[in-house]
Design a binder for these strands. Structure first.
Lengths: 123, 123
DNA sequence: CAGAATCCCCGATGATACTG
DNA sequence: CAGTATCATCGGGGATTCTG
């Protein structure tokens, strides 16, 4: 391995730093796109605690969420592979949601956010 | 300790579940309010890697961010107690940002999100 | 070089009504 | 009970300009 001038070594190091930073940015952006919705984290938290969760249950727990919005957010989480939707062909209709294996990998992240939020001073 | 009917015990247990859920929701909402901005996580990630970070450096690393938006986001992070701003009365002006102790408690959360995002399938 | 003030746009949510 | 469709709304953040 050739030894170059300090400036050149520094340049290489900087480039490496930038590459890592860039990868982090991509990862963080992906994560935010998925869990960044106004209700996503709350929904995931509910579903993980009460799994499987029914549509009506989630509606009650989220209090302020609209029927249409709830459907939309769940649909997004589903198409992102985080939750799984199962409809029972009964009458009245019943639909249950639960975390997929991929969704389960999110649980530690949710817990971390939760714990941090609890520790954050209210003021 | 008195033993009640199963139904009543179940009711108590449900109420407790709801309380925990509610607290989680508050915590998650707080967390999202603070780190939920479009650039917040990216900025924090940059600052933690290169601390203190200069305004101009951050601008370069964030590529697409606008001058005004960068100022705004940094200001919010500052008023939320996550970062600290230090201006040097020189010419040309120089401003440095670094994590506060409270901001440092966010690092594990950022790392968790980052790691999760890296593992998320691209498709 | 960094910040403040303005204006403006677009997309995420909310409201409402109808369907199976 | 749950989903879909449509329209209305609101606010975060982008563009621009001016200042020290």
């Amino acid at each position: 391995m050739e030894k170059d001038t300090i400036d050149e070594k520094q340049a290489v190091s900087d480039a490496e730093e930038m590459r890592i930073l860039e990868e982090n940015n991509i990862a963080l952006t992906k994560a935010m796109r998925i869990i960044g919705g106004k209700w996503k984290l709350l929904l995931l938290n509910s579903i993980r605690r009460d799994c499987p969760a029914r549509f009506g249950e989630l509606r009650k727990k989220m209090q302020d969420i609209t029927h249409a919005t709830l459907t939309a957010q769940l649909k997004e989480l589903e198409s992102d592979g985080i939750i799984e939707r199962k409809a029972y062909p009964e009458v009245p209709p019943r639909v249950e949601y639960k975390l997929t294996p991929l969704g389960i990998t999110l649980v530690p992240v949710i817990e971390a956010l939760c714990a941090w939020g609890e520790g954050y001073p209210d003021k």
